[in-house]
Design a protein around this nucleic acid. Structure first.
Length: 535
RNA sequence: GCGGGUGUAGCUCAAUGGUAGAGCAUCGGCUUCCCAAGCCGACUACGAGGGUUCGAUUCCCUUCACCCGCUCCA
């Protein structure tokens, strides 16, 4: 399936529009049209219902280590700026970058390393992006190259000082960039603000600087104590939240896949450290199955466990649920959801101050004055088990899903072209969105076969009855074949048609979107029949 | 952010330094008893800003957006 066809259909039928389109659009922002908003709402509601409201906390769910509770939360997009300093987003999201004018390479200013070297009366800062154990060798090779020296003349190189970060260098004209052929090709460092900032309050002042959240998760952590104190929930339990998040993606691209404003569906699941690995596995498998159950059943969906060396030491597992989007190269997958075992990193950070993820055991990252670089809340976020009297900091399993990415994956999966005979028996291409009935924007369409003989009146009565229970669509215009095809593109799973026979025996036909098969049911039963099939 | 490409009707595309066309879709009418049918009619476009020119959708500059490659992707 070519992506262009889906993009075109999304616009034509009202699933997705470019934001601010009449003004030329704005990069990284997308709007959901009349069909799209229903689709996305259905996905979010299915998630909320399946994960939260219909969860049975009295029983042990299949595959779960124990029974557990689920609850929800809806917190603000703008929070205290300290939240993001402690969470690590502030540091991670305000990288400074340098670009190489020659090789077009881009490097993290703090991560590019090098060493001063002098030869032939010139002093150059030679850089490398080689792995740590290869660093010294690469620097030597690069130094020989920049001074046009042979291997045997390596003694002519006079190294000055240790290998240090590019951050220590002021004189960019003397920097020899990786893979470059000459000196001085790097730009001055530029700041990349990966969090969108804002200035709440009437005066735009640095004191008032705050951020639009880059994830919903932190709102759950900072409310952990409130939820425990107000709801009588007991560990293990999960807090779910759906909401908008914002990231200044450097390259928004691939339709809605990488947007700057997007919606997340996140759960933070709190459990005892001893059981966290079992809970991690439960959530990983449960979330994977959720996508399968809603129609991403094929090989384009995969569950990928991160390699142990990809993991932070405090995490015992992270898995991505990925989909082979058609805009990606063959064999590549895009992330729909990440399920991460986060240990006690987040709750402890919000108590003690930002932890340094590189330390083992985890320690608070200190600033130059020996105090925490970013101070925590100082609040006690530990949990006391009423029954065992044990006090501990819960470990966290985080299933974090992208609502827009899920929506896009369901759209991609649903797009289908087949061949169906026309009125004259000739095969014609049909475009059909084979959305799972549960997420389809319109559940059923109702047509009078022709606009006369009292058929519209009967059809309208059925339409009114249906619309009280689920989204339905009435259409009496033009040829019935055309009306069917329109609903196929909208992904409507069922069409109900009132015909001549209806007027004599009170039955109507139901037409199945995917098979085109039709069968007759009594008018009195048709609403229940559809309701059963779409829930 | 860099390099390349593309912006014309709701969609897919055409033509042109001087009145911008088509197919499909949409709307109205007639016809029509099951899969985009037929006939008649209607609506709708040169991404934005500036320049050159008597005149610019066309040439030039800038900008915005989209696509491809690089980069980035906590």
């Amino acid at each position: 399936m070519e992506m262009e066809k889906l993009v075109s259909l999304c616009k034509r039928r009202g699933f997705l529009f470019q934001s601010s389109e009449i003004y030329g659009g704005i990069n990284g922002f997308w709007d959901y049209g009349p069909l799209g908003v229903e689709l996305k709402r259905n996905i979010k509601e299915a998630w909320w219902r399946d994960m939260v409201t219909s969860h049975d906390e009295l029983s042990v769910v299949a595959g779960a280590p124990a029974s557990y509770e689920m609850t929800g939360l809806d917190c603000t997009i703008i929070m205290h700026p300290q939240v993001w300093k402690v969470s690590g987003h502030y540091d991670l999201f305000s990288d400074r970058m340098v670009d190489c004018r020659e090789t077009k390479g881009r490097y993290r200013y703090d991560q590019l390393r090098g060493q001063w070297v002098e030869a032939k009366g010139r002093r150059v800062f030679v850089t490398t992006n080689a792995e740590a154990d290869d660093e010294a060798d690469d620097l030597r090779r690069r130094a020989l190259k920049v001074f046009r020296l042979r291997n045997k003349d390596a003694d002519a190189l006079v190294w000055d000082g240790p290998i240090v970060s590019l951050e220590t260098v002021d004189d960019f004209a003397s920097v020899f960039a990786p893979q470059a052929s000459k000196v001085g090709t790097l730009t001055e460092p530029r700041e990349f603000n990966l969090m969108l900032d804002c200035y709440p309050g009437p005066i735009k002042d640095e004191k008032n600087r705050a951020f639009l959240r880059p994830e919903t998760a932190q709102g759950i952590f900072v409310n952990f104590k409130n939820v425990v104190d107000s709801t009588r929930v007991r560990v293990p339990f999960g807090i779910a939240q759906v909401g908008k998040s914002f990231r200044n993606e450097i390259t928004p691209r691939n339709f809605t896949f990488r947007s700057r404003e997007f919606e997340q569906m996140e759960i933070e699941f709190f459990c005892h450290p001893d059981t966290s690995t079992a809970w991690y596995k439960f959530w990983r498998d449960r979330r994977f199955r959720w996508y399968q159950d809603l129609g991403l059943a094929g090989e384009r969906l995969q569950l990928r466990d991160h390699d142990p060396d990809e993991l932070s030491h405090y995490s015992t597992g992270t898995a991505d649920i990925e989909y082979a989007f058609p805009f990606l190269p063959e064999g590549e997958y895009g992330e729909l959801e990440g399920i991460a075992h986060r240990g006690d990193f987040d709750l402890r950070s919000h108590m003690e101050g930002k932890l340094n993820p590189e330390t083992n055991p985890l320690e608070v990252e200190l600033g130059e004055n020996g105090k925490p670089k970013y101070k925590g809340s100082g609040r006690d976020l530990t949990y006391r088990d009423d029954l065992s009297n044990e006090r501990f900091t819960p470990h966290v399993i985080e299933p974090s899903a992208g609502a827009d990415r899920a929506t896009l994956a369901f759209l991609c999966e649903a797009y289908c072209e087949d061949e169906q005979p026309s009125e004259k028996g000739k095969l014609e291409t049909r475009v059909v969105m084979q959305l799972h009935p549960r997420i389809a924007p319109i559940k059923a369409a109702i047509f009078p076969l022709v606009k006369k003989d009292g058929m519209p009146e009967v059809a309208k009565d059925i339409y009114r009855a249906m619309k009280k229970q689920f989204p339905a669509f009435y259409d009496e215009k033009g040829a019935v074949g055309r009306r069917y095809r329109r609903q196929d593109e909208a992904g409507t799973p069922y069409c109900i048609t009132v015909d001549g026979q209806t007027l004599t025996d009170q039955t109507v036909t139901i037409r199945d979107r995917d098979t085109l098969k039709q069968w007759r049911v009594k008018i009195d039963d048709v609403v229940d029949e559809i309701a059963t099939r779409v829930s």
